[in-house]
Design a protein around this nucleic acid. Structure first.
Lengths: 189, 189
DNA sequence: AATCCTATGAGACAACTTGACTCATAGTAC
DNA sequence: GTACTATGAGTCAAGTTGTCTCATAGGATT
């Protein structure tokens, strides 16, 4: 039997990941230490070291277990799809764990290459999908773009992210509507 | 002689604050420890403990020494003032230390009350000043607002902050222009 | 059931870190 | 010159970190 299929191994692994995620959520990334994770997970300290010799790798994997906001496959009309997706992201940003993961990512990525790779991947997906959806909407004549389609993520998610992490206030639908209008002139206006 | 005027005291204090700021910038908030700061500042370890018994307070004060983007007194026309100020903020966000301070603030504020107070103060100033400037522009008939004036900070600074800290890409003037247009209909259009 | 394999918890361990304290020295005011 | 006090260097106990060892027990295979 190889480690990866041993139920004892998998049980410990899950317990450790859950404990790490809880600690991140409750007390921040600095709380994700081998000792604290072991206590919270109810496993031996040595077990945590065996699974993740580096606490930082554990933090990264624990962060990856938090469901982050993404964009579903675009539907038509794009404007409705966009309204729906941005509202979903807004709701996600109200969750403590999503805020914890995104701000930890943005912060630690400045000094840590592994974190930066995760940040880049995350940001890239959002920017790409939104750009593709808008390019398509433009090709169909649904919108006349006021900016490059690759600026759309910053223009729409940016205000919500700022509202949620810097102003720490709820995201109202007016902000979402304003962001959607800011992308260009919609033919359905 | 009281401590606060003793040149020896002030010299140590400055050296410690500078070292802490450098460490934050180069290696992140976790690098701001008594030992590392003492080494970098060229002072004894005990001196750092005497000045700041809590490393976190030192981090907060060191962060406060980094010049953060604010908004100058509004001039007329508001649109020109806004373009100028947002461009200034965009330039500031390209600086490593501004990114380090703002993302550290957003992240640590989630678990630390003192940091959260700083975050709230910082966010409040930007939101208030921008709202006041836009209310004034509206009263003068320079703009018909597409959103509440208190949403303006999120709508304009948000995209730049997201671009700079999540997408980690340069802020182009098209993004700034789009944000300005998103605020409403300018009478000078 | 019996056997083998291996992940685990408990514990021991040295190396290092942390925060507190002491004291001789030297920078500064008067 | 004298008095004051911030400082660096050093000491110290308590706690933390990462590694290793070993008996145990969970789980697969027969």
């Amino acid at each position: 039997m190889t480690s990866e299929t041993d139920p004892r191994f998998l049980r410990s692994r899950e317990a450790i990941l859950n404990a790490a995620r809880e600690l991140l959520l409750e007390s921040g990334p600095t709380a994700v230490t081998h000792v604290q994770v072991a206590e919270r997970a109810g496993v031996g300290r040595a077990t945590v070291y065996r699974h993740w010799p580096q606490a930082e790798s554990l933090l990264i994997e624990a962060m990856a277990t938090v469901p982050m906001p993404f964009l579903d496959k675009p539907t038509i009309p794009t404007r409705e799809w966009l309204r729906r997706e941005l509202t979903a992201i807004a709701r996600q940003l109200e969750l403590d764990d999503v805020r914890a993961v995104s701000t930890t990512l943005a912060n630690t990525a400045l000094w840590d290459q592994n974190m930066d790779a995760r940040r880049a991947q995350f940001a890239g997906i959002l920017t790409d999908r939104l750009a593709a959806a808008l390019d398509d909407a433009h090709a169909r004549g649904e919108i006349t773009l006021a900016l490059t389609s690759r600026d759309a993520a910053a223009m729409t998610i940016g205000p919500m992210y700022y509202r949620s992490t810097i102003e720490r206030a709820p995201i109202d639908s007016a902000l979402i509507e304003a962001a959607i209008s800011a992308l260009g002139t919609w033919s359905t206006d």
